[in-house]
């Protein structure tokens, strides 16, 4: 199963990378969202896979049966999901503001911070 998941994760990462290589901020944003999912799946697979039994201790037991899924990666992913959602929200609004303020979603045209034709620094003394 891990093999198949590895391939799936590869597809996730490849898609994310392709989208992020775009000039357009919106596509970069989509890429970031997919990247987050890829990372989560990677963490999930890193803890090895088990089918269907959630890590919840039954009422009549004190310990979790060993067939249950590995809870640690799940907890890590929960943390990571929340964080990546936060970043996604921030970036989304940033993109929106970028479009508003700079009038474009094309990163090639966003040259306010690093203008294109800057004059040489003074050469004298």
């Amino acid at each position: 199963m891990e093999t198949l998941f590895s391939l799936l994760i590869g597809v996730f990462f490849a898609s994310a990378v392709y989208l992020m290589l775009s000039k357009h901020t919106v596509r970069i944003l989509l890429g970031i969202a997919i990247l987050g999912n890829g990372v989560n799946l990677l963490l999930f697979t890193a803890g090895r896979l088990t089918r269907e039994i959630p890590p919840i201790i039954p009422f009549d037991s004190d310990v979790l049966p060993s067939a249950a899924a590995n809870p640690l990666p799940q907890a890590l992913i929960l943390t990571a999901i929340v964080i990546s959602f936060s970043f996604f929200a921030f970036l989304l609004v940033l993109t929106y503001r970028g479009y508003q303020e700079l009038g474009t979603d094309n990163t090639d045209e966003m040259r306010l911070a690093e203008p294109k034709d800057e004059s040489l620094p003074p050469l004298g003394y």
Partner: peptide
């Protein structure tokens, strides 16, 4: 305004 530009590159 140039901060938005800088912030975008920085953030990504």
């Amino acid at each position: 305004r140039q901060q938005v530009d800088g912030a975008l590159k920085y953030a990504v």
